[in-house]
Design a protein around this nucleic acid. Structure first.
Lengths: 331, 331
DNA sequence: AACGTGGCATGCAACGTTGCAAGTGGCGGT
DNA sequence: ACCGCCACTTGCAACGTTGCATGCCACGTT
């Protein structure tokens, strides 16, 4: 068995309480007692028992990240930043995948897999606002993305409307006139997709251009590929696609290139998320780059701040990362 | 506060112990008592306290995944499978990043970030065999990859020598004669890289071809890109590169294409890991596809199996996934 | 009627930690 | 010499759960 406070106390000839005081840095311990206890602590390699501390103090040191899937590059990158930031604050990150299933999202929101966590960071996919109601003694929760929770919960997001408008406007400025949007989720209450669609429509309306919206089931490469095949099969004469994720964009670009289209000469492709894949794609992918570290920090700040307050909406910075996939149509 | 066994017991007019018996499915409970207690359980929305169970039973329900970084696609995909498989077995996955730092790897091996876990799944990058010694009451640990632990620990890996030989042989069979290897780690005791290098050398030796080995700092896209720039700058006349990860390969392919090389006509590129990026790259990337689900299952099987036994070495299946990036040189 | 049996229910203790309040001893001031 | 204060130390209790041992009751058997 691992050494407990009691073992250390017995060996150092002091009470359990005093050892606890040394461990926790309580100031009222005589220097020589502290030193003696410390020596025994080192000798026995004492490590505090997390379960007992949790039971006693109510703090588990765990934060749950509830996302559709960790294998998706965007969530992977985000999880990396979250794990780093969480560690700086004395938390460990725990990953729970929902697979985008509403039922499972609800389930994990209630009690995170039976684990008692100090907080939840949730990126919902298919949850309706009603699902997001929290009990009074539930762990604090931060939403990623703009799921409409009726102002009941902390949010962290970028300004998706503005970002989508910027991408679309950029495409227009490079001379494209038939710009499709790949990614709407008409059958889900997915507020993030709705906002991006909104920005896309605004930019098109401003320029007096027609739009074409291609719904997809998920935001994977395969969905982007399917959408592009659909566009090509329909003989749609698009000269640009704005995809709601880099994964969609990479899938779409792949199919476009396979079909002999030149990117960007024949078709401009833009994505969203700025995942590393896009930077090294051929051609490199124009995308919206959210400040992922900023998102991670803001989310953890929300969980750190236990003060009673109104739920806040944190808007994190983003910028348009222009790369070769949308270079001006001047071959 | 959340309802406890005591609350339920008081309300149902039975003892705490009886409620516990109902919750845990102990058979000796009268049907009507069970029903009454169950009703109160539902009414109060009782959820077992994880901390108390952990303290009492010694089981936390947590598994730690210790990896260089979760943002890396290979680890992201693997983590996804591990999280799924872990959940099936009643475990929750916790992510700890080492950043490839040997010191931090050691630290996390000892006590995983202060969390008491039921097991560790570790993918070491820079650890020496000596670092891997475990105390008698440490949590069970499984190594991913072929870190040489002197047979002291459970391993899960694919046959890296064979896989590297297959890739190299495949490149030779498509007519390539100047095949570089990108990825060796000469300054680290990274057994996985060593095995792949071994397989590469074997295949070349068998064919009587010369080799060229390009060491890299890490396995990222940027490292692959740097390696390719180096090869080009040195005027090396290579007609194929075998990269020790898909990330390296994608970085290398990116630079090659930027420099006007045609892939695969001028240069064949092969990777390792079969991450999704490679499948949708332009051109799609030939790679070694390890059975990632198999790796996840084998790792968790090791942790599940608490029986005293000799450390085992599990070799998981792999296959060569041939795609356009290494198509025969017949333009 | 006494006894044994088996089904069911319960009280106690312990897991390792920390908040609380009380205890101890020495020292300086009156 | 006595008191009070302060620095330091300590025992008790409790967090919520479950293993163990025991208690209780009804019923069937002798």
């Amino acid at each position: 068995m691992a050494a407990t406070l009691r073992d250390v106390a017995a060996r150092a000839g002091v009470s359990v309480r005093t050892v606890s005081n040394v461990v926790s840095g309580f100031p009222l311990v005589a220097p020589q007692t502290r030193e003696r206890v410390q020596r025994v602590l080192d000798e026995l390699g004492y490590r505090p028992n997390a379960a007992a501390r949790h039971l006693r103090g109510g703090r588990s040191g765990l934060i749950a990240l509830v996302i559709p899937e960790i294998a998706s590059p965007y969530f992977g990158e985000l999880a990396g930043h979250l794990a780093d930031e969480a560690e700086k604050r004395g938390w460990t990150l725990l990953v729970q995948q929902t697979g985008g299933d509403a039922h499972r999202e609800r389930e994990l929101l209630g009690g995170a897999g039976g684990q008692a966590v100090d907080g939840l960071i949730v990126s919902p996919w298919a949850l309706s606002p009603a699902d997001l109601r929290r009990g009074p003694d539930a762990a604090p929760l931060v939403l990623l993305g703009e799921q409409d929770a009726g102002g009941l919960l902390d949010h962290v997001a970028i300004d998706n409307v503005a970002a989508a408008r910027e991408v679309t406007t950029h495409l227009i400025q490079t001379g494209r006139t038939r710009i499709a949007a790949v990614g709407p989720q008409p059958h889900l209450s997915n507020a993030t997709a709705d906002r991006r669609l909104e920005g896309y429509r605004e930019a098109l309306a401003e320029a007096g251009l027609p739009g074409r919206e291609v719904p997809v089931a998920r935001l994977h490469r395969a969905d982007g590929a399917a959408a592009m095949r659909e566009l090509i099969a329909a003989g749609a004469e698009v000269d640009a696609v704005f995809c709601f994720s880099d994964q969609l964009a990479l899938g779409a670009m792949h199919v476009a290139v396979q079909h002999g289209l030149r990117v960007p000469a024949d078709l401009a492709v833009a994505g969203f998320d700025d995942v590393e894949d896009g930077r090294y794609a051929n051609p490199p992918l124009t995308t919206v780059a959210p400040d992922k570290v900023g998102i991670a920090r803001a989310a953890l700040d929300c969980l750190d701040d236990r003060s009673p307050r109104e739920p806040a909406r944190h808007i994190v910075a983003h910028h348009l990362e222009i790369r070769a996939s949308t270079a001006a149509d001047t071959v």
